[in-house]
């Protein structure tokens, strides 16, 4: 290699690491965890969420009463579901409204499989969403550029900044103003939805982003919304927009 080319390469490497250090101040919850938990998440043989992924893969191939399995229409999930979780919530023409990934799965169950919708936070729904979300691992979060989602995102942004509950706190008070600092033993993350559904050690179970948000709302001593409330969808849409371009690490492990 000539001196000039070496210099060019060094310059490129320097520029790239400089951009990394200077550029994006966003940090996923994964980066706030200690090395032991990061290892647990990274090792598919140790990440308990993979038990649910395994159940989800089985459910993917299972025929519904009406005769069709997810696989019958969508084929191999590793190809057809790649990047899908990274762009939900999205506007569904079939439903005529924005829906999140769980909503999309249930829409397929009710309209395409003539089956019952799976209950929020049920093992069945979590397993399928974990299996679908896994196919977006490493993919950048890519909220759709769709004007039909603007209102929802604006509502989410407003909710995020609104003080509520007996503690009179907003999401932003913790996740923007005090991110990286401690709340009791926990590090306050920036609150990016990169890893959902997550296996949370405190729950000893897999849970959705809605369940995580419910926990924060309860933490603010506000009345948590029911699982079908539109407020979650608004917050989810806003949080995905806020995390645009960050890499998905689902299914994550969190403390």
């Amino acid at each position: 290699m000539t001196g000039l080319r070496l210099a060019a390469v060094l310059l490129a490497v320097f520029a790239a690491s400089f951009a990394l250090a200077q550029g994006d101040p966003r940090r996923s919850g994964y980066r706030e965890m200690g090395p032991a938990l990061q290892k647990m998440q990274d090792d598919d043989a140790a990440n308990p969420a993979m038990l649910f992924v395994q159940a989800g893969a089985a459910a993917w191939a299972e025929k519904a009463a009406a005769g069709k399995s997810c696989a019958d229409c969508h084929g191999d999930a590793t190809a057809s579901m790649k990047g899908v979780a990274a762009r939900y919530p999205a506007f569904s023409a079939e439903a005529g409204k924005p829906i999140d990934l769980e909503g999309r799965i249930n829409l397929c169950r009710t309209t395409h499989q003539q089956a019952e919708a799976l209950a929020p936070e049920s093992d069945g729904l979590l397993a399928l969403s974990a299996y679908v979300a896994l196919q977006s691992r490493g993919q950048p979060i890519a909220p759709p550029d769709d004007a039909r989602l603007s209102n929802l995102r604006a509502e989410g942004a407003e909710l995020y900044k609104r003080r509520q509950g007996q503690l009179n706190l907003s999401c932003a008070n913790c996740h923007d103003d005090h991110a990286g600092r401690k709340l009791a033993g926990a590090t306050i993350p920036q609150g990016h939805p990169t890893g959902y559904p997550i296996y949370r050690l405190e729950w000893q179970a897999l849970g959705s982003l809605k369940r995580r948000l419910r926990n924060c709302v309860i933490g603010m001593r506000a009345e948590p919304w029911s699982y079908d409330a539109a407020d979650y969808l608004a917050l989810e849409s806003f949080l995905m927009q806020r995390a645009k371009g960050m890499a998905m690490d689902a299914p994550g492990v969190r403390p």
């Binding site: 090792d43 043989a45 140790a46 993979m50 038990l51 000893q204």
Partner: peptide
């Protein structure tokens, strides 16, 4: 050898 099992404990 690693072994993980689903159980409520």
């Amino acid at each position: 050898i690693k072994a993980l099992i689903m159980h409520v404990m």
